[in-house]
Design a protein around this nucleic acid. Structure first.
Lengths: 143, 143
DNA sequence: CTTGAACCTCTAGTCGCTAGAGATTGTACG
DNA sequence: CGTACAATCTCTAGCGACTAGAGGTTCAAG
């Protein structure tokens, strides 16, 4: 359970070795003790913390949000409203991205529908790209 | 119409000046003629090409796809099936991303719903992050 | 002719990793 | 105990599509 090498930690938590070192470098994970030969050795606490980070990344939180969530989770007496707000903010950005992508998707479907599958010279796909006025919507930038 | 400075081209096409230089650097835009003092001067052809690029970027195509679309658009006699395929491939990736984000969104909504808005110690948000087994789905990585 | 906005090149930073080089360490086996 | 070799170490660079800034030059209006 304790004194895991970085490779063992990696397998347990399904986070790649270089990613673990990267997390240490940016301060998401504390620097663990080392063997005499300077190899890292991890304990149960690190397993939990890295799992937390991995789950949060899977949910699409960026590193800054994870930093905040981690520091919130260390203070169980505090109100959880700040955590709430972080999740809500992220949810809203996910929803904005979905809306953007849906616009994009319908645009692309229209392009495909309109294309008569002939030659490039009369291809609606190319025409729409060349002259956007023939297009249905305006978009912002999608991340 | 012709002999535009990079700033004029930028305003016409709504692409920022450094972005135009970047496109030249990566070979999306041809290197234009210069004045004696080495400043770029653009013509009508560049306006079209840059518009094409901008529209394609708005539709989320990556630079490699745009490169292909541009070279296809230069050959009006060729069948437009390759263009078709590029658009379809992109549409599919957009749809995959939408599906991913929708999973994420519902996950985040559940977290918010479950949170009783008390203290961090009993906060479902923190708990779910700390122990993913309490969670509903498995996800892959979202771009 | 002077001013100053626009232009030039070059480098580095963004985000969250990933890949690779080249050196060192840990460990299993004989 | 020696050796082989997998795993670890540090460091640097690269991804994509730009963006920002420094420090210097040119163009065009008045």
């Amino acid at each position: 359970m304790t004194n895991l090498s970085i490779g063992e930690l990696s397998r347990r938590v399904s986070v790649k070795v270089p990613t673990i070192r990267y997390y240490e470098q940016i301060g998401l994970l504390p620097a663990p003790p080392r063997t005499e030969g300077r190899q890292r050795r991890y304990g149960a606490e690190d397993v939990s913390r890295l799992s937390f980070i991995r789950h949060a990344r899977e949910l699409g939180f960026d590193v800054e949000a994870i930093r905040e969530l981690l520091s919130l989770s260390a203070a169980p007496e505090q109100p959880c409203e700040p955590a709430d707000r972080i999740v809500l903010r992220h949810l809203e950005s996910v929803e904005r991205r979905i809306a953007q992508l849906q616009l994009l998707g319908s645009e692309l479907r229209h392009m495909l529908d309109d294309c008569r599958h002939g030659q490039v010279g009369e291809c609606r796909i190319i025409q729409v790209l060349a002259d956007h006025e023939q297009c249905r919507h305006e978009h912002g930038r999608v991340s």
